[in-house]
Design a protein around this nucleic acid. Sequence first.
DNA 1: TTGTAAGCGTTATCAA
DNA 2: TTGATAACGCTTACAA
Lengths: 349, 349
Amino acid sequence: MALAAMTSSRRTSRPTLSDIARALDLSEATVSRALRGSPIISEQTRTDVARVARELGYVPNAAARSLARQASHTLGLLVPDVTDPVHGMIVAGFGQAAAAAGYTVLMLDGVREDRRRASALRTLREHQAQGVAFCSAPVSPEEAAEALRPAHAVFVLPEWTGADAEDRPLGRIRADDAVGIHLLVEHLLATGRQRFSYVNGPDIASNRLRRGSILRALEAQHVEPRIREFSASLDRAEIDAVARLAARERPDVLMCYDDKLALHLLDALRNVGLRVPQDVAVTGFDGIPFAAVANPRLTTIEQPAEQMGARAAEALIAAIESGAPPQDQLLPVRLAVRESSLSGRAGNG
Amino acid sequence: MALAAMTSSRRTSRPTLSDIARALDLSEATVSRALRGSPIISEQTRTDVARVARELGYVPNAAARSLARQASHTLGLLVPDVTDPVHGMIVAGFGQAAAAAGYTVLMLDGVREDRRRASALRTLREHQAQGVAFCSAPVSPEEAAEALRPAHAVFVLPEWTGADAEDRPLGRIRADDAVGIHLLVEHLLATGRQRFSYVNGPDIASNRLRRGSILRALEAQHVEPRIREFSASLDRAEIDAVARLAARERPDVLMCYDDKLALHLLDALRNVGLRVPQDVAVTGFDGIPFAAVANPRLTTIEQPAEQMGARAAEALIAAIESGAPPQDQLLPVRLAVRESSLSGRAGNG
DNA sequence: TTGTAAGCGTTATCAA
DNA sequence: TTGATAACGCTTACAA
């Protein structure tokens, strides 16, 4: 008996329920109940168990619990690139909300790469994730279905808008890009800009959506949507090319897919001698912190990224615990007007 | 029998080993061995099992495996703030290296806050993390010990340099700050800067270390270490105060704790009318991507942050699998000279 | 209020 | 080469 006890405590070197039970001469079942605050346990037992658990430094084993309960209390979060400020904020918000609700997060990064995405999905299945959020990730319907099997899913940014979206336990958390863009276009028109151009980001849904919103916003303002489009990923050569084109064509505004792109473009414009905002206005999208301290400070549409992450986790958890599919949500954005789009043009057209 | 099968497959809705075993009329043990490529399995059985597993969409249950093997294959990563570019890169590198080695990462954010740090450590114990990395996190010796119990630990940035470091299974992954700072000081002296000042970041070990290195580097260059220190967290009011002080005292250089601080200071200096680098040089530390496109582009010391994360994971895994404590590592840095520290001073002293 | 025992999905030990 | 069987640590009927 004593030997068994030693052996068992040596083997894992972590105290278990049965260590507590043995110390108090109780059954494991009673200890388990006491630890989780079951109402049918006597006050005496409860305090005894709590004390011994503390003394022993007992912490429940998540794997065992997951197995016994048939619930992992684990959420998956798929991210294309954690080093991106927006994704970082989503991750932060998601993690905080999940932790607050007692859920563990498996954050898998780099899922733009096929192999890593596949491995991430497999990891989530192995760990029996009860819900998964796709953060701006290009997931195919097949993959989504695969990831979901019995789980719930939420798309934080609307990368996937598959036709069969209705059949699946999906929810979408989005920022109200359209409204933000409407405000932005209004502001730009008000400051006298006329020849608009849009600088495309990578060819993903959010880029297409923003681009579409710009066209619609211009129409709504009865501006002929004479929009010149430029294409640039974050590849530096492409951005330089856009800057050179802009120097030649002289649009009034360069509306960029996102802040990161805009900040790099600002740098490229400096190289070709175009002044912002005197020669051309530049706007971003997202509201990342560095946009506020760029030189010139960048006009942008601020998304509540951290809140979006938190909402995603909450939606997932609510869905898991209620059994109902996660709810869609549309969060408000805010236009931050800064130097890069001020009027006072030098008039070059 | 058929009923039992249905019941069992309904209950979890995920196929298990026994589903495969039943389908092929084999034992679970054999299926388990076949799946993991045990050499003592017949070719026939192996292919049969693989086929059925694929058909059924079988994925092993991590919780069950962790329990049976007494090894979670899980690593913990404690991060103060994922939205910080440096931390983001560490997280990215760590995650990639861990995944490549078949380990799952539990990334816990916001651990600067006491409560979240405590909860993070508990989560890691619950999940039986076999190793944990503290990324620039202010951990107390007690907490570290608590986190470690039977696990291994690596400190990615040297926040904790406790006296009893020797007794514990610790390893430190650091960038060679001292060398970088030496190069930086040399460069600044070569461009004619004389009155140095250091802008302190938060009062954490890495700040103290960088500060110390600057003093030593100045001494080594036989420059009287007349260094004026300023204090600024990322609180905007403090940064503005530093800018005003700088406008009054006119040091030749403002060496900042890190890039983030430097970028904000650049903005503040613009407000008080100080030109960089004509009136004062500004340098950062870390080499975050936005430093390269700031206006003026920021001179900085580039740390291989992503590589540091990867090394941390690798060191942890090596330690786990060999049983030896993790190895210390010192990674090289690189001085990136950019506009913010160019010579051509307007001569104001 | 507490205990007994079965089970969760794997792996590992021993036999066969 | 394969099969029983006993863990792994916890939860949960069902009994007492």
